[in-house]
Write a protein that binds this DNA or RNA. Structure first.
Lengths: 157, 157
DNA sequence: ACGGTTTTGACAACTAGGTTGTCTATAGAC
DNA sequence: GTCTATAGACAACCTAGTTGTCAAAACCGT
Protein backbone atom coordinates (compact mmCIF):
# COMPACT_ATOMS: atom_id res chain seq x y z
CA UNK A 1 0.00 0.00 0.00
CA UNK A 2 1.26 3.39 -0.90
CA UNK A 3 1.67 5.86 1.88
CA UNK A 4 -0.23 9.08 1.71
CA UNK A 5 1.28 12.43 0.86
CA UNK A 6 0.25 13.75 4.23
CA UNK A 7 2.17 11.00 5.99
CA UNK A 8 5.21 11.85 3.93
CA UNK A 9 5.02 15.47 5.03
CA UNK A 10 4.66 14.46 8.65
CA UNK A 11 7.56 12.04 8.41
CA UNK A 12 9.79 14.81 7.13
CA UNK A 13 8.66 17.18 9.84
CA UNK A 14 9.04 14.47 12.45
CA UNK A 15 12.55 13.76 11.23
CA UNK A 16 13.56 17.35 11.50
CA UNK A 17 11.99 17.71 14.91
CA UNK A 18 13.72 14.63 16.18
CA UNK A 19 17.10 15.98 15.11
CA UNK A 20 16.50 19.54 16.22
CA UNK A 21 15.15 18.58 19.62
CA UNK A 22 17.89 16.07 20.26
CA UNK A 23 20.51 18.60 19.22
CA UNK A 24 19.06 21.29 21.44
CA UNK A 25 18.99 18.92 24.39
CA UNK A 26 22.53 17.79 23.79
CA UNK A 27 23.78 21.35 23.42
CA UNK A 28 22.16 22.20 26.73
CA UNK A 29 24.05 19.32 28.32
CA UNK A 30 27.25 20.72 26.93
CA UNK A 31 26.70 24.13 28.40
CA UNK A 32 24.76 25.90 25.68
CA UNK A 33 21.27 26.26 27.01
CA UNK A 34 18.24 27.34 25.08
CA UNK A 35 20.04 27.28 21.79
CA UNK A 36 17.97 26.60 18.71
CA UNK A 37 18.96 26.33 15.07
CA UNK A 38 18.17 29.97 14.51
CA UNK A 39 20.95 31.07 16.83
CA UNK A 40 23.49 28.88 15.15
CA UNK A 41 22.40 30.25 11.84
CA UNK A 42 22.60 33.86 12.97
CA UNK A 43 26.09 33.41 14.39
CA UNK A 44 27.21 31.81 11.16
CA UNK A 45 25.80 34.69 9.17
CA UNK A 46 27.52 37.25 11.37
CA UNK A 47 30.74 35.30 11.07
CA UNK A 48 30.36 35.36 7.31
CA UNK A 49 30.39 39.12 7.33
CA UNK A 50 26.93 40.33 8.29
CA UNK A 51 28.39 42.23 11.19
CA UNK A 52 25.70 44.83 11.81
CA UNK A 53 22.07 44.45 12.79
CA UNK A 54 20.83 45.88 9.50
CA UNK A 55 23.05 43.63 7.44
CA UNK A 56 22.04 40.56 9.42
CA UNK A 57 18.42 41.52 8.90
CA UNK A 58 18.93 41.70 5.16
CA UNK A 59 20.77 38.42 4.97
CA UNK A 60 18.23 36.62 7.10
CA UNK A 61 15.29 38.27 5.43
CA UNK A 62 13.80 39.55 8.66
CA UNK A 63 13.19 43.03 9.98
CA UNK A 64 15.99 45.04 11.54
CA UNK A 65 14.20 44.85 14.86
CA UNK A 66 14.04 41.10 14.78
CA UNK A 67 17.72 40.91 13.91
CA UNK A 68 18.58 43.38 16.65
CA UNK A 69 16.70 41.24 19.13
CA UNK A 70 18.57 38.12 18.09
CA UNK A 71 21.86 39.95 18.33
CA UNK A 72 20.85 41.19 21.75
CA UNK A 73 20.35 37.62 22.89
CA UNK A 74 23.62 36.45 21.40
CA UNK A 75 25.51 39.34 22.90
CA UNK A 76 23.99 38.85 26.32
CA UNK A 77 24.99 35.21 26.16
CA UNK A 78 28.49 36.11 25.10
CA UNK A 79 28.42 34.50 21.67
CA UNK A 80 29.05 37.76 19.87
CA UNK A 81 30.43 41.08 20.99
CA UNK A 82 29.95 44.46 19.43
CA UNK A 83 31.57 47.83 19.31
CA UNK A 84 30.68 51.07 17.69
CA UNK A 85 32.32 51.39 14.29
CA UNK A 86 34.94 54.14 14.59
CA UNK A 87 34.32 55.13 11.00
CA UNK A 88 30.54 55.18 11.23
CA UNK A 89 29.21 55.92 14.63
CA UNK A 90 25.69 54.85 13.71
CA UNK A 91 26.81 51.28 13.39
CA UNK A 92 27.66 48.70 15.98
CA UNK A 93 29.83 46.05 14.42
CA UNK A 94 29.73 42.58 15.86
CA UNK A 95 32.25 39.82 15.94
CA UNK A 96 31.78 36.22 16.93
CA UNK A 97 33.57 35.46 20.20
CA UNK A 98 35.53 32.34 21.01
CA UNK A 99 32.48 31.17 22.87
CA UNK A 100 30.47 31.70 19.72
CA UNK A 101 32.89 29.69 17.64
CA UNK A 102 32.84 26.99 20.28
CA UNK A 103 29.07 26.85 19.99
CA UNK A 104 29.28 26.48 16.22
CA UNK A 105 31.80 23.67 16.54
CA UNK A 106 29.80 21.88 19.20
CA UNK A 107 26.64 22.30 17.20
CA UNK A 108 28.18 20.75 14.12
CA UNK A 109 29.55 17.93 16.18
CA UNK A 110 26.22 17.23 17.84
CA UNK A 111 24.41 17.10 14.53
CA UNK A 112 27.08 14.88 13.04
CA UNK A 113 26.78 12.54 15.99
CA UNK A 114 23.04 12.37 15.56
CA UNK A 115 23.48 11.67 11.89
CA UNK A 116 25.93 8.91 12.76
CA UNK A 117 23.32 7.39 15.08
CA UNK A 118 20.85 7.37 12.24
CA UNK A 119 23.41 5.79 9.96
CA UNK A 120 23.91 3.06 12.53
CA UNK A 121 20.24 2.35 12.65
CA UNK A 122 19.41 2.19 8.98
CA UNK A 123 22.82 1.90 7.41
CA UNK A 124 25.05 4.51 5.87
CA UNK A 125 23.98 3.60 2.37
CA UNK A 126 20.34 4.03 3.13
CA UNK A 127 20.91 7.36 4.87
CA UNK A 128 22.96 8.71 1.99
CA UNK A 129 20.28 7.53 -0.35
CA UNK A 130 17.72 9.47 1.65
CA UNK A 131 19.84 12.60 1.48
CA UNK A 132 20.42 12.07 -2.20
CA UNK A 133 16.70 11.71 -2.82
CA UNK A 134 15.88 14.92 -1.00
CA UNK A 135 18.64 16.76 -2.83
CA UNK A 136 17.40 15.43 -6.13
CA UNK A 137 14.00 16.80 -5.32
CA UNK A 138 15.57 20.20 -5.40
CA UNK A 139 14.84 20.89 -1.78
CA UNK A 140 16.54 24.13 -1.06
CA UNK A 141 18.05 24.59 2.33
CA UNK A 142 15.73 26.99 4.12
CA UNK A 143 17.49 30.17 5.07
CA UNK A 144 14.76 31.32 7.39
CA UNK A 145 13.28 29.17 10.07
CA UNK A 146 12.62 31.77 12.62
CA UNK A 147 9.18 32.60 11.39
CA UNK A 148 6.66 32.53 14.21
CA UNK A 149 3.69 30.36 13.60
CA UNK A 150 5.41 29.16 10.51
CA UNK A 151 3.50 25.94 10.65
CA UNK A 152 0.18 27.56 11.23
CA UNK A 153 0.28 30.65 9.08
CA UNK A 154 0.18 30.91 5.33
CA UNK A 155 3.50 31.63 3.68
CA UNK A 156 3.94 35.31 3.05
CA UNK A 157 6.15 35.10 -0.01
CA UNK B 1 32.14 13.34 0.92
CA UNK B 2 29.64 12.68 3.63
CA UNK B 3 27.03 15.29 4.22
CA UNK B 4 26.85 16.95 7.59
CA UNK B 5 24.20 16.25 10.17
CA UNK B 6 23.10 19.87 10.01
CA UNK B 7 22.47 19.60 6.28
CA UNK B 8 20.42 16.49 6.88
CA UNK B 9 18.24 18.36 9.35
CA UNK B 10 17.79 21.25 6.95
CA UNK B 11 16.93 18.92 4.10
CA UNK B 12 14.19 17.34 6.17
CA UNK B 13 12.84 20.72 7.20
CA UNK B 14 13.08 21.97 3.65
CA UNK B 15 11.21 18.94 2.41
CA UNK B 16 8.40 19.48 4.83
CA UNK B 17 8.23 23.16 4.08
CA UNK B 18 8.10 22.52 0.38
CA UNK B 19 5.16 20.17 0.80
CA UNK B 20 3.32 22.25 3.37
CA UNK B 21 3.69 25.51 1.47
CA UNK B 22 2.69 23.95 -1.83
CA UNK B 23 -0.30 22.31 -0.20
CA UNK B 24 -1.40 25.53 1.45
CA UNK B 25 -1.11 27.40 -1.83
CA UNK B 26 -3.01 24.73 -3.71
CA UNK B 27 -5.75 24.63 -1.06
CA UNK B 28 -6.11 28.39 -1.38
CA UNK B 29 -6.59 27.97 -5.11
CA UNK B 30 -9.32 25.46 -4.45
CA UNK B 31 -11.23 27.78 -2.20
CA UNK B 32 -9.72 27.03 1.20
CA UNK B 33 -7.71 30.06 2.10
CA UNK B 34 -5.28 30.40 4.94
CA UNK B 35 -5.46 26.76 5.81
CA UNK B 36 -2.44 25.20 7.39
CA UNK B 37 -1.79 21.65 8.53
CA UNK B 38 -2.92 22.48 12.03
CA UNK B 39 -6.46 23.14 10.86
CA UNK B 40 -6.67 19.89 8.98
CA UNK B 41 -5.39 18.12 12.01
CA UNK B 42 -7.85 19.78 14.34
CA UNK B 43 -10.82 18.97 12.11
CA UNK B 44 -9.68 15.38 11.92
CA UNK B 45 -9.42 15.19 15.68
CA UNK B 46 -12.89 16.65 16.13
CA UNK B 47 -14.22 14.25 13.55
CA UNK B 48 -12.64 11.41 15.47
CA UNK B 49 -14.67 12.29 18.53
CA UNK B 50 -12.99 15.21 20.27
CA UNK B 51 -16.13 17.24 19.95
CA UNK B 52 -15.67 19.78 22.73
CA UNK B 53 -13.01 22.42 23.22
CA UNK B 54 -11.67 20.75 26.35
CA UNK B 55 -11.45 17.36 24.71
CA UNK B 56 -9.74 18.78 21.66
CA UNK B 57 -7.28 20.52 23.95
CA UNK B 58 -6.46 17.24 25.66
CA UNK B 59 -6.05 15.34 22.43
CA UNK B 60 -3.88 17.99 20.87
CA UNK B 61 -1.92 18.59 24.02
CA UNK B 62 -2.61 22.31 24.08
CA UNK B 63 -4.45 24.52 26.51
CA UNK B 64 -8.21 24.79 26.44
CA UNK B 65 -7.90 28.39 25.35
CA UNK B 66 -5.74 27.53 22.38
CA UNK B 67 -8.18 24.81 21.37
CA UNK B 68 -11.11 27.18 21.79
CA UNK B 69 -9.39 29.70 19.54
CA UNK B 70 -8.81 27.12 16.85
CA UNK B 71 -12.41 25.97 17.08
CA UNK B 72 -13.48 29.59 16.83
CA UNK B 73 -11.60 29.94 13.58
CA UNK B 74 -12.97 26.70 12.17
CA UNK B 75 -16.50 27.60 13.18
CA UNK B 76 -16.25 31.07 11.70
CA UNK B 77 -15.03 29.54 8.46
CA UNK B 78 -17.84 27.02 8.46
CA UNK B 79 -15.73 23.90 8.79
CA UNK B 80 -17.32 22.87 12.06
CA UNK B 81 -20.52 23.83 13.74
CA UNK B 82 -21.39 23.63 17.39
CA UNK B 83 -24.41 23.45 19.61
CA UNK B 84 -24.89 23.34 23.31
CA UNK B 85 -25.12 19.80 24.56
CA UNK B 86 -28.73 19.28 25.72
CA UNK B 87 -27.55 16.93 28.44
CA UNK B 88 -24.74 19.16 29.71
CA UNK B 89 -25.28 22.82 29.21
CA UNK B 90 -21.68 23.67 29.98
CA UNK B 91 -20.53 21.95 26.82
CA UNK B 92 -20.70 23.02 23.24
CA UNK B 93 -20.43 19.97 21.05
CA UNK B 94 -18.99 20.39 17.60
CA UNK B 95 -19.50 18.44 14.43
CA UNK B 96 -17.58 18.66 11.20
CA UNK B 97 -19.70 20.17 8.45
CA UNK B 98 -19.84 19.03 4.84
CA UNK B 99 -17.53 21.90 4.08
CA UNK B 100 -15.14 20.55 6.71
CA UNK B 101 -15.22 17.08 5.20
CA UNK B 102 -14.65 18.60 1.79
CA UNK B 103 -11.56 20.34 3.13
CA UNK B 104 -10.23 17.08 4.51
CA UNK B 105 -10.78 15.32 1.21
CA UNK B 106 -9.22 18.12 -0.79
CA UNK B 107 -6.29 18.29 1.60
CA UNK B 108 -5.59 14.59 1.24
CA UNK B 109 -5.85 14.85 -2.49
CA UNK B 110 -3.50 17.80 -2.67
CA UNK B 111 -0.87 16.05 -0.60
CA UNK B 112 -1.22 12.90 -2.63
CA UNK B 113 -0.77 14.88 -5.80
CA UNK B 114 2.36 16.47 -4.43
CA UNK B 115 3.68 13.10 -3.44
CA UNK B 116 2.97 11.84 -6.93
CA UNK B 117 4.97 14.74 -8.33
CA UNK B 118 7.87 13.76 -6.15
CA UNK B 119 7.56 10.17 -7.25
CA UNK B 120 7.73 11.31 -10.85
CA UNK B 121 10.88 13.21 -10.20
CA UNK B 122 12.90 10.65 -8.30
CA UNK B 123 10.96 7.48 -8.98
CA UNK B 124 8.40 5.66 -6.91
CA UNK B 125 10.94 3.18 -5.63
CA UNK B 126 13.23 5.86 -4.38
CA UNK B 127 10.42 7.75 -2.71
CA UNK B 128 9.14 4.66 -0.98
CA UNK B 129 12.64 3.91 0.14
CA UNK B 130 12.87 7.38 1.64
CA UNK B 131 9.63 6.86 3.51
CA UNK B 132 10.76 3.45 4.61
CA UNK B 133 14.02 4.85 5.91
CA UNK B 134 12.29 7.54 7.95
CA UNK B 135 9.82 5.03 9.32
CA UNK B 136 12.64 2.69 10.26
CA UNK B 137 14.24 5.50 12.18
CA UNK B 138 11.24 5.40 14.43
CA UNK B 139 10.18 8.90 13.54
CA UNK B 140 6.91 9.35 15.24
CA UNK B 141 4.32 11.39 13.45
CA UNK B 142 4.19 14.65 15.35
CA UNK B 143 0.80 15.26 16.88
CA UNK B 144 1.48 18.88 17.63
CA UNK B 145 2.82 21.31 15.15
CA UNK B 146 1.04 24.36 16.29
CA UNK B 147 3.69 25.44 18.72
CA UNK B 148 4.68 29.06 18.24
CA UNK B 149 8.35 29.62 17.81
CA UNK B 150 8.77 25.90 17.76
CA UNK B 151 11.92 26.28 15.77
CA UNK B 152 13.38 28.92 17.98
CA UNK B 153 12.37 27.84 21.45
CA UNK B 154 13.67 24.94 23.46
CA UNK B 155 11.31 21.99 23.67
CA UNK B 156 9.28 22.07 26.82
CA UNK B 157 8.76 18.36 27.33
C1' DA C 1 30.77 73.32 1.78
C1' DC C 2 26.13 72.94 1.96
C1' DG C 3 21.50 70.63 1.44
C1' DG C 4 18.90 66.61 0.22
C1' DT C 5 18.74 61.65 0.50
C1' DT C 6 19.86 57.31 2.60
C1' DT C 7 21.05 54.36 6.35
C1' DT C 8 21.43 52.86 11.23
C1' DG C 9 19.46 51.43 15.14
C1' DA C 10 16.05 52.59 18.78
C1' DC C 11 11.28 53.20 20.42
C1' DA C 12 6.41 52.37 20.38
C1' DA C 13 2.44 50.00 19.02
C1' DC C 14 0.67 46.06 16.98
C1' DT C 15 -0.24 40.81 15.52
C1' DA C 16 -0.49 35.76 15.98
C1' DG C 17 -0.34 31.88 18.47
C1' DG C 18 0.43 30.34 22.47
C1' DT C 19 0.53 30.28 28.10
C1' DT C 20 -1.38 30.43 33.19
C1' DG C 21 -4.64 31.90 36.59
C1' DT C 22 -9.20 33.12 37.99
C1' DC C 23 -14.00 32.69 37.75
C1' DT C 24 -18.98 31.11 37.08
C1' DA C 25 -22.11 27.77 36.02
C1' DT C 26 -23.19 23.16 35.65
C1' DA C 27 -22.67 18.28 36.54
C1' DG C 28 -21.54 14.24 39.11
C1' DA C 29 -20.45 11.68 43.56
C1' DC C 30 -21.02 10.29 48.14
C1' DG D 1 -27.54 18.31 49.86
C1' DT D 2 -23.06 19.50 50.07
C1' DC D 3 -18.42 18.76 47.98
C1' DT D 4 -15.63 18.26 44.15
C1' DA D 5 -14.58 18.24 39.30
C1' DT D 6 -15.32 19.98 34.65
C1' DA D 7 -16.48 23.37 30.67
C1' DG D 8 -15.61 27.31 28.80
C1' DA D 9 -14.84 32.41 29.20
C1' DC D 10 -11.96 36.38 30.55
C1' DA D 11 -7.84 38.83 31.63
C1' DA D 12 -3.08 39.22 31.75
C1' DC D 13 1.04 37.74 30.05
C1' DC D 14 4.91 35.62 26.83
C1' DT D 15 7.60 35.22 22.54
C1' DA D 16 8.96 36.00 18.04
C1' DG D 17 7.80 38.50 14.81
C1' DT D 18 5.72 42.99 12.20
C1' DT D 19 5.30 48.21 10.63
C1' DG D 20 5.86 53.07 11.37
C1' DT D 21 8.36 56.90 13.21
C1' DC D 22 12.36 59.17 14.49
C1' DA D 23 17.15 61.35 15.43
C1' DA D 24 21.70 61.06 14.35
C1' DA D 25 25.13 60.12 11.21
C1' DA D 26 26.92 59.42 6.60
C1' DC D 27 26.85 59.87 1.70
C1' DC D 28 26.25 62.42 -2.56
C1' DG D 29 25.58 66.03 -6.05
C1' DT D 30 25.92 70.57 -7.19
Amino acid sequence: MARSGADLALLLLGGFRALADAASAELAKRGHENIRPVHDFAIRTIDAGADTASELARQLGVSKQAAAKTIGFLEQRGYVSGEVDPRDSRRRRFTVTDEGHALLRTGEQVFDELRAQWAERIGTTELERLEEALSDLGIRIPTRFDVPGYLTNPPTD
